[in-house]
């Protein structure tokens, strides 16, 4: 979700095989830019790419891990080669082309990207994008959703979101949107995590959610 000079990205924490829940405790903490702990996965997991760029990978558990490892490798190679951090727009196209490389045997993931991109003037502009499983990008000005609860997320987000929200208001909006949507969806929930990216810090919070 886009706010005023900030963006937010949120995800639930459930991993399950069909209706059977396997895990609900995912507190993966990134260590530093290069030596990140390899995360386990959930139906959707949000990963930091740079200090101002996050990606959420909802979909098939095995592909969440595979793709995260792939993106980590490609972003690290990019950072070393270019001697600068990757921009959200560039990263989105990297994700998109990675997915399209597997056009006829796709990874079952619908990524969501959120970050702050640098303007030539030196300022920062909120950036969000989502993709389908073969990499068709949807650039949005307001919000993007993905995963098993996407239809419910659209409904709540449509009702709650408004332009130019301050970080704390954006946090409340995205949290309420996510929690209320996953409570209507049998395959997601079991806790949630929210990251609000502002120009000088990232506010990361885990939310208590219904555990049924």
């Amino acid at each position: 979700m886009v706010g005023k000079d900030c963006v937010a990205i949120a995800s639930d924490l459930r991993l399950g095989t069909q209706a059977l829940g396997i895990s609900s405790n995912f507190q993966r903490v990134p260590v530093s830019h290069f030596s990140r702990v390899c995360p386990s996965l959930t139906i959707c997991q949000v990963f930091p790419i740079t200090d101002r760029l996050y990606v959420g990978l909802p979909g098939l558990g095995t592909d969440v891990t595979t793709l995260y490892e792939r993106f980590r490798y490609r972003v690290n190679m990019y950072t070393i080669k270019e001697e600068r951090e990757i921009h959200p727009e560039t990263f989105t196209h990297m994700v998109s082309s990675t997915l399209y490389e597997h056009r006829f045997g796709p990874y079952f993931i619908e990524p969501v990207v959120a970050g702050l991109s640098k303007l030539p003037t030196g300022g920062l502009k909120p950036f969000i994008a989502a993709m389908d499983l073969i990499g068709c990008i949807n650039f949005a000005k307001d919000f993007v959703v993905a995963g098993t609860a996407s239809s419910k997320l659209y409904g709540v987000a449509e009702g709650l979101w408004e332009p130019d929200l301050e970080p704390e208001d954006l946090f409340e909006t995205i949290s309420q949107t996510l929690l209320n949507a996953v409570d209507r969806d049998a395959f997601s929930g079991w806790g949630a995590v929210v990251h609000v990216i502002t120009k000088d810090r990232v506010i990361s919070r885990t939310l208590k959610a219904r555990m049924d």
Partner: peptide
């Protein structure tokens, strides 16, 4: 916990097979 798809997750307890429906 690892399944045949290559899904891995670190857990405090885990089960596979039909027993998992009762044990978990």
């Amino acid at each position: 916990w690892i399944d045949y798809l290559g899904t891995v997750v670190e857990v405090p307890f885990a089960a596979h097979g039909y027993g998992s429906y009762f044990a978990l």
